[in-house]
Structures are given as C-alpha cells and as structure tokens.
Write a protein that binds this DNA or RNA. Structure first.
Lengths: 221, 221
DNA sequence: GGCCTATCAGACTGATCGTTCTCCCTCATT
DNA sequence: AATGAGGGAGAACGATCAGTCTGATAGGCC
C-alpha cells in the first residue's frame, strides 16, 4: 500500500497525520489539540497513528519539522529571495512579506514562538526543537547580513530577529501595521550598521581604519 | 468574617488563591496548571475556591489583574521611573530593567504575551484581557514619548513595544543579552525620532533641556 | 444559647486526556 | 492457498480535567 510518491517514501496515512497536525497545532497550539482531533481530521485509525508516532510529542516534533519546511523555507526564505536580489533589500523584504502575512484573516502567528512559550522548560525536547528552528531563521538572516557586508553579522541578525519576533507578537495583539512599524526601525538599524558612524562595534567591512577622525567624531554618544 | 472591603485583605483564602495562581500560571502557563494544583498550593478548600471564582477562567482573569499590579506597575514602571528622571532616559531604562530580569534564574517571560498566545481566539475574554494589559504598557511608553517631545508618540510607543516584546521572546530562547541588543536598536530609534532629520513627520517641539548633558554622558552605555 | 457565614475535607460527577488492546479487512508476495 | 504487513473501527485503560455536592468545624453577632 506504500505506493507513495516517487521519492518520498512516506505512507499516505503518515502524511495525512502530519497535515492534520499542522493545521490544528499551528492555529490552536499544542495543549489545546488532543490526539482525538488529529485522528478525526486525518481520517486515520487510532492505532495507525501510534504506529507512525510513538507519542503525541513525536507528532509535535514532526509538526515543527514540517513547519520549517513549509513556513521557513518554502514560504519566508523563498519569498524574500524572490522579492529582491540585493542582500540589504532582502533583509528589508522580510517585513514586506510579514506585512502580507499579518493581514491574512486566519493569521496564526509563529508556531516556533508559540510552541516554545507553551513549553517553558528549557530542557524539554519540544522547547529545544522550537528554539533550534528559530535559530535556523536567525542563520538565514546572518547570511544575508554577511553578504551585505555587515561586520557583526551575528549580533545584527539577533537584533533583526528581535524586530521580527516583536512584530509577530504585535500582530497577534491585532496590530496589522506591525510589520511596517518594525520595518522603519529595521531600516534605521540597517543604515546604522552599514555607516561608519556612531557605534564603534559596527564598522564597514572592507575599509581601512585609517581615518580615525570620522570614527572618533561619531563615537561620542 | 469579611471585615475588609475597604482596603487591603479582601479575604485570606482569596488572597492565597491569587498568590498560588500567580506563581503557577506565570511560570507554567494556563493550560498546564490544573485547579487541583492551585488548590493544593494555596491550601484552600475546593469549594472555597469556587465561592470566590465562578470558574477557572475567572481565576485566570484575577491572575492577569494581579500581574499588572505587581509586574507592570510595582516593578517595571516603578523601576523605570526610579532609575531616571528624563523621559528619554526613562525610555531607555526599560531595557536596563529588562536586562536584570533576563538574567534571573527563574525567568518566566511576559505573562501577557504567553497567555495571549495561548488563547489565539481574539474574542476570548482571556485573550482580550491580556491584550488590554499589553496596551496598558504601551500607554505608559506613549506618555514617556510625549514627555520626550516625540511627535508621533503612539507610533513611537508601538515601535518601542515591539522591541521590548521581541527581546522578551529572545530571552525565552535563552539569549541573556537580548535586552542590551534591543537597547542599542532603541537608542537609534530614539535618536532618529528626536532629530529633525530624514523623516519630516518627526520634530522636537517642546524640548526640555533638564540638565541633559550630565545625564546623557553617563547613561548611554 | 441560636444563627449566620466562611472555611475545610473529601467524595463524586461526566468529560476528556494520551495510550493500549482486540478484531477484522485488504492486498502484494510467496 | 498461505502469509504477513498496513490500515480501519472501536472498546477500554487509568489518569486527570473542571466543576458539584455533602457534611463537619469554627468564630462573630444577635
């Protein structure tokens, strides 16, 4: 019965389970969704589910993995890369993509944030997985920052990610313009990170620190 | 028995219930805490709890109310006001207060964010209450922004709040330096909002140079 | 004293939780 | 024809959930 699709050796039942889990978990959270709801929506037998996933937690981990494939890779990163070619513009495009997302009627928020906050215990496998997928998003940002010639790419990516996460929470509150607000802040941050100006920890990538004047002049703040 | 009704101790049992709910809900979330746990920790009889709170949801609403009293008012706002007198410095002091918070061993995150994301339904009373308390924090920021002479105080407060919420989520991921990272971005935002520079919508109307020199020298670190 | 009210202690409800178990059906391979 | 694996349907497990009901105790007030 496992005729499956060409190279995806996934059984039909398993795929239906993951799809059902995705739709339910992403919109309602983990604790609010029982296995009965997943079984009903997937149309799969109870025992079949436990043949593919040893526990509900295993299904949650599979959901997070799918979320990264679908949301992070196939949607966010693909859309950002498609909208611009310049790394700086790609960084800013993140908030344009978010803007459309925030205005969808069934806005579900970031599952990695939701699930991570739902499992506060830092040692919990689900918390660790969600945090790891968030770090994956950060690494994408870090790559763009490095391409843009930003010196402290990691620190910059963490700041950029803070703006992204903050805007997502604001959107959850109901502020549909949260992405535009965050984008304005981000634009200032980007400009500041690329300019040889005020903060001494940030400097232009391929420039000799020869002109100490300009740095000293802007450092006083 | 209820001699109170004027000021403090409403009821000893009720107070113990709210305290127990505060400690459990703030660290573990709503769904993860059953009424049995609250009853056990408070040392109150089951029926006594249902005499003071008609349902668990009522207890959750009481918890959120207490959270605003204790966390927002008595801690965050008080600490911010205590650390600086200049409105600009007070805005930045938010992140200094957060910095200490993020480094506590039992960091519990923002209950308003946690609870709001745990109840995605925007019509749910608990979601609405949590969002309302978040708006309360924003109004505090808006007041400071207005005192600082920022033209679009509301938009500025929303941007500031995005940075705060983003840093809280980052701290939940384990980044203990999240407050410092957000503060740097915030400093740039504040500078930009006060300067008559690029954005024409921003202007410094009623600037109050209350010995800003001596303070600005030691504050920006 | 009697009355009222708050509290305590604990059994109990019906529903739901995640999980296990049993039985039957289908179908490709032997 | 026999085999075995994958799946479907559903009962049943023990635990926990939020919430109800009963009965006893204690103290303030008339």
């Amino acid at each position: 019965m496992i005729k499956d699709e060409q190279r995806g050796p996934v059984s039909d039942a398993r795929e239906r389970l993951v799809i059902a889990a995705y739709e339910l978990f992403s919109h309602q959270g983990i604790q609010a969704v029982g296995v009965d709801a997943i079984i009903e929506r997937s149309g799969v037998a109870r025992q079949t589910m436990y043949r593919h996933f040893a526990s509900k937690q295993d299904l949650v981990l599979a959901f997070l993995e799918r979320r990264e494939e679908v949301w992070t890779r196939k949607w966010l990163e693909t859309e950002v890369v498609r909208r611009a070619t310049d790394p700086q513009e790609r960084l800013l495009a993140v908030f344009d993509v978010f803007d459309g997302w925030f205005r969808t009627s069934d806005f579900e928020g970031c599952s990695f944030i939701n699930v991570m906050l739902e499992h506060p215990d830092r040692a919990h496998p689900v918390h660790r997985a969600a945090a790891a997928y968030l770090a994956g998003i950060r690494h994408f940002l870090e790559g763009l920052a490095r391409q843009a010639g930003i010196a402290d790419a990691e620190g910059f990516a963490r700041q950029w990610h803070i703006l992204m996460k903050g805007s997502i929470v604001a959107a959850g509150e109901g502020d549909q313009d949260a992405a535009l607000r965050a984008k304005k802040v981000a634009a200032g941050l980007l400009e500041h990170a690329l300019a040889p100006g005020q903060t001494p920890s940030v400097r232009p990538p391929t420039r000799k620190p020869r002109s100490a004047k300009t740095r000293a002049a802007g450092a006083a703040a």
